[in-house]
Design a protein around this nucleic acid. Sequence first.
DNA 1: TCTGGGGTCCTAGGACCC
DNA 2: TCTGGGGTCCTAGGACCC
Length: 397
Amino acid sequence: MAVRRVIAHLDADAFYATCHELRDPSLKGRPVVVGGSGPRSIVTTASYPARRFGVGSAMPMSRALRLCPEAVVIAPDRELYTSTSQRVWTLVAEAMLAAGAVCDGEEGPIAHLEQAGIDEAYAELVRLEKPLAFLRGLIADVREQTGIQLSAGVSPSRLISKISSDLEKPAAFVVLSREQALERLAGRPLSIVPGIGPKAAETLAGLGFRTLSDLARAEPAALLEHFGESRGTWLAQVADLSVDVPLQPVRLRKSISSENTFEQDVDADAARDPEAAARLREQIEQMALEVAQGAVRRGFRGRNVAIKVRTAAWRTYTRATTLPQYTDEPARVVAEALRLWDEHRPDEPVRLIGVRLGSFEHVERAERGAAGGAQDGPDGGTGGVRQLRLVLDPAEG
DNA sequence: TCTGGGGTCCTAGGACCC
DNA sequence: TCTGGGGTCCTAGGACCC
């Protein structure tokens, strides 16, 4: 008998906004918009009352305020989200371990859980007799103990579960087989599929494929021709919702970066504005330091240093070097970033600059720790529940 | 509506080695 | 003197996600 897979996608509703509401209950029920206050800031998360005004993620704040002038704008608070997130996913991991939904890790059992962001995760409910009852209980516990409401999509695959959890938010609990999903999603635009963004959607629309059922009629050969081997094959599998990628309970970080968009463009040409040019150089130095210190804190050493520049005209470029040895020495990272900057500094106004450190050496060991334990260190932790710590604090969007 | 900051993954092309 | 093909490492750009 074939083993029936049950994969849940768990996604916190309006996570950032809810974190703030939990800290300040007077915000509850009001149109809360999390985001910066500068002229170029965008909305990170909008509470459901704010969404009723048409406010949404990634929207320029200026537009959000035009749509909803009475919105309460709140500056993002990383630490608040990280600590709340840890409480939520620790609870989930512990419940799964207690219930026996575990896989083997090098150092013992790990919950069959893949964190996919600060506010979402996939859980594979192996060896549970009543997975749905378990999930409902878990979601109720999480809400009681943390105040966070999780939406759930449950199906035989990550893709279907991910799409499903989004269908009836907030507080969704959508259970679908592949066949039921094919029927229910047939007329939906392809943009509901994670991995099909604006560009791919446009290309597909040009070929006459706008919905999932359109795509199901596509010749696989045509998809391969337009999208190449890898993506073409994937799209063909999306069409019948047969995409199936195993969970990755432990993931390694690949890079650490820091970048900043200026409220106004800054002239990088030293001849025209030496002071501005000096400020930019200092910022590169500062960011390189930050990034290197982040690596030190986490016990990583990298080999690849890169800078990123976006000009006022929205031309974006990166310049990178690979060092002969791995390093976490701030002075080394700073020196490389400054060298790249000096060699590739634009002579036109810039809107963004950034620094990244990558190509980490930590192959030998997964980045994980005891959930809710120490904040950092490759194996830092209390030795309790083992859980991926992977994506540390990805912003929402 | 003029577009953040943190990431991941993929592709193309060049250098270099055998 | 001209020319092979595969593999690896690296850079750069871009799509995409939260």
